[in-house]
Simulated scan of single mutants.
Amino acid sequence: MAGVEDVHELAAGMPHVTVVHGSKENPVYQVGGKSFVFFRTPRPDAVDPDTGERYTDVIVLWVGGEEDKLALLAQPPFFTTPHFDGHPSVLVRASRLGEISREELAEVVQDAWLARASPARARRWLATQRLDDQVE
């Protein structure tokens, strides 16, 4: 099952990635200066529905578009909040990553990178993936 360390490893393992830190030293993974995965600071719109407590472990992952977003939102543990309405991203709590496999997480992180990478970088990376598939 997936864990937080997998998010870091998978995001950092994509090509041309830099890590910057937000205002609370939260990691933000970027490609070409564009964020594709980041660890969000607690906000009033992401709260536990039972307790009203702010979630302290939300991870934001970019998606390719609304269709991709809706597909991920249909499967737990992914969710969104009103703050992210119309934004090409989904949220997941770090504490719930164990509900998906590392392979599923890898696909989501790779898709997040593809959504933000330049077309040339995306094409080059996808070409290497096809070559890897042919070798196996």
Rank of each mutant, 00 (worst) to 15 (best):
V47C: 08
G52Q: 13
A46Q: 08
F38G: 08
E9Q: 08
V109K: 11
S118E: 15
P44C: 02
T18S: 01
V60L: 14
S23M: 08
A11S: 14
R54E: 14
V92S: 13
Y55G: 04
V19G: 04
P49R: 00
W125G: 04
G98R: 03
T18Q: 09
E66M: 07
A94T: 03
I59G: 12
H21L: 11
R93G: 14
L105D: 09
V4P: 01
R43N: 05
E5F: 00
G3E: 09
A117Y: 14
A74N: 15
W62D: 12
A106G: 08
R93T: 02
F38C: 08
E9I: 05
Q134M: 13
P119Y: 04
Q75I: 06
R102Q: 14
L70Q: 13
T18E: 10
P76R: 01
D68R: 11
P49C: 03
S101R: 02
P44H: 00
R40Y: 09
H16Y: 00
F38D: 09
V58Y: 02
T56C: 06
A71Y: 01
V135W: 10
I59Y: 13
A122Q: 12
L97Y: 06
R40C: 01
P88G: 14
E107R: 01
S101A: 06
A117W: 11
H83S: 03
V31P: 06
T81Q: 09
E9H: 05
G33L: 01
L91M: 00
R121Y: 11
L131W: 01
P76V: 03
I100G: 13
V63Y: 05
R40S: 05
D132M: 00
E5A: 15
W113F: 13
I59M: 15
D57C: 07
E99T: 06
A120H: 14
R54A: 15
E9L: 11
V20R: 10
P15N: 10
S101D: 15
V37L: 05
V63E: 11
S89P: 09
E67K: 02
P88I: 02
S35E: 11
I59K: 01
V37W: 03
A115M: 05
M14A: 15
H87N: 02
E136V: 11
Q30F: 01
D6F: 00
Y29P: 07
T80G: 07
L126V: 11
L70E: 15
F38P: 06
R123N: 09
A115D: 10
P49I: 07
V7W: 04
V4N: 01
K24S: 12
G52D: 10
P42G: 04
S118D: 15
A112M: 02
R124M: 05
P42E: 13
R116Q: 12
A71R: 12
V90P: 04
E9A: 15
R54P: 11
A127K: 13
L131C: 02
R116Y: 06
